[in-house]
Amino acid sequence: MSITPDEIIATAKLAKLQVDDKDISEVTERISAILELVDQMQAIDTSEIQPMANVLDAVQYLRPDTIVEPDNKILRRDQFQQIAPATDEGLYLVPKVIE
C-alpha cells in the first residue's frame, strides 16, 4: 500500500502539521516505506491470534471513585494559569472559536 501526496497534505492538515511544498515528495516516499513495512506484516496469517488493544499483557487497574483535590483550588488554578498566554476571570483565553 502506498500513499499519495494529496493524502499526505490532507493528513498533515488534520494533524495541524506544517509540511513545506518542497518536502511533500520526500515525506510521501518515507511514509510509503512505512506502509510497505505494514503490508509485509499484514501478509502474516493472524487468523488464529486474538487481537490485542495494548502491547502490555496486563489489565487496567480501576481506582475507587474518590475526589482528590488540592486544599486551595484557586491557588492551584492560578499556578497552572501562569504558563497560559492569556487568561481572564479564571478562564483560559483562546482565539475566538465559533461554528
Binding site: 475526589i67 483535590e69 488540592p70 483550588k73 484557586i74 488554578r77 497552572f80 494559569q81 476571570e89 478562564l91
Partner: peptide, 17 residues
C-alpha cells in the same frame, strides 16, 4: 482523574494536571 465533577464551581478549579 480525582477532580470533582460538581456543577457550578469557579472556572478551572476542578481541572488538575
Amino acid at each position: 482523574s480525582g477532580s470533582s465533577i460538581a456543577f457550578g464551581a469557579e472556572p478551572n478549579t476542578q481541572a488538575n494536571a
